[in-house]
C-alpha cells in the first residue's frame, strides 16, 4: 500500500499547494497546511529514494512457483 500512499501524498501535496497559493487561508491554517505539505513532500522524496528495483522471474515447477532474480543487463539482444 506504500504506492497508494505515495500517490495520495502527491495528490494531497498538490491540493495543499493550490490552497496555499490561493491565499484564502488563515495564517494558522496556512502554517498547518505548509507543515503538512512539507511532510508530504519529504515522504514522497523518501519513498522515491527508498525504491530499489527488483526484477524476478517466476517459474512453475511441479506445481510450485519459484522466484529467481532476473538480470536485466544479461538479457535482450
Amino acid at each position: 500500500m506504500a504506492r497508494k500512499t505515495f500517490e495520495d501524498a502527491l495528490a494531497k501535496l498538490e491540493e495543499i499547494t493550490r490552497e496555499l497559493e490561493s491565499g484564502d487561508l488563515s495564517l494558522e491554517a496556512s502554517l498547518k497546511k505548509f507543515e503538512e505539505g512539507i511532510t508530504l513532500a519529504r515522504f514522497c522524496n523518501t519513498k522515491l529514494e527508498e525504491c530499489q528495483h527488483k526484477v524476478s522471474l517466476l517459474q512453475e515447477k511441479n506445481g510450485s512457483v519459484t522466484e529467481t532474480p532476473f538480470n536485466v543487463n544479461d538479457n535482450g539482444s
Binding site: 525504491c51 530499489q52 528495483h53 527488483k54 526484477v55 524476478s56 522471474l57 517466476l58 532476473f70
Partner: peptide
C-alpha cells in the same frame, strides 16, 4: 523509475 518492481511470467 529505478524503483520499479517487475515479475516476469514466462
Amino acid at each position: 523509475f529505478a524503483g520499479l518492481q517487475v515479475e516476469i511470467l514466462p
